[in-house]
Design a protein around this nucleic acid. Sequence first.
DNA 1: ACCTGAACACCGTTCAAGT
DNA 2: ACCTGAACACCGTTCAAGT
Lengths: 191, 191
Amino acid sequence: MKQVRSPGQRAGLTQARVLEAAHELVADEGVAGLTMRALAGRLGVLPNALYSHVATKNALVDALLDDLLAQVAEPGADVEDPIDGLRTMMTSTFEVLVAHADLVGLYISRQGARGPNAQRLGEVMLRLLARLDVTGERAIDARRVLIVYTIGFAAFSPRGVADGPPLPAAKVAEDYAAGLDWLLTGIATRK
Amino acid sequence: MKQVRSPGQRAGLTQARVLEAAHELVADEGVAGLTMRALAGRLGVLPNALYSHVATKNALVDALLDDLLAQVAEPGADVEDPIDGLRTMMTSTFEVLVAHADLVGLYISRQGARGPNAQRLGEVMLRLLARLDVTGERAIDARRVLIVYTIGFAAFSPRGVADGPPLPAAKVAEDYAAGLDWLLTGIATRK
DNA sequence: ACCTGAACACCGTTCAAGT
DNA sequence: ACCTGAACACCGTTCAAGT
């Protein structure tokens, strides 16, 4: 890959530009198209130049996933019903993730790390759970159930888990909502 | 990779032997160690020889996953409480999958296909759901929720989704059981 | 500090040829 | 039909060197 810049001129890469190009690459070519070499090509740079800005490809995937979570709608602190707050938040998370389901699958397969956005959302969840009198270890457990359920559904959404033709997106969202209600009811009533 | 067989002597590979060696390889080296080349080496054969017995590596992973599901304990047809039957079955599925969590992650990341064992278990689930008067499309939906929940939890189990040190396995199983109860209660009461 | 040049140590898969 | 030999078209990552 020859570069078109005149010699000595810097590419001027930055971590933000690398992440931005990576998002575009995944959008254009799918997660299978996300290779360090393709990403470098898109940035007009040799593959190894990326390692001045990201530690590894895995770290890059973690960062991409956490970036997505910045789009999740948080309920306002003044929401009346904490169950509604949790439902809103988890549904928003599901919608954001389901739009990038292949990336989520890659993330799961690596037992992805948790970034700053994930951490922030996790704290909002704990506050809402506390208002349901679910605290301490029980709150941690309930949160884990909600997160695993949401991420799992998003990862599976493109083809579903049953036989037959691909599922319509609306159907998947409906099923997700039904299961979410069951979980929230169970959590709230400490069954 | 030189072969030790005398020339002209066949390796005598079969699909079953390839799958068996693949299971051993994953057990010994983890899912990252599952490469066509390593698998061939273990069988005393060149990498491309495998393609006489498996179509692609993805097909091999699908077959490995479905093999695992052969170990799932089905409730007897005479089980009194269908909820107990579902709980037993899903918990057994969870336990089998959690013992091979990395393989499950790989499966999810590829939107894995469904094999014969998965299909058989799915039919047992529908029969149990029917005894709860959950039939038709509602049954398909409930089943999908249960399966996604179970597989998702198994895939995430090694490190968990919250911060801090790795979770003890007993803790994960406990959380899984709690969420499963919420889901089953919700399904049975058609909330 | 940031990037190039070159290489290392791998991958999955295909194809022609032998038996 | 099953396997070898050889290759194709890739990967992620490292290291030394230039600026």
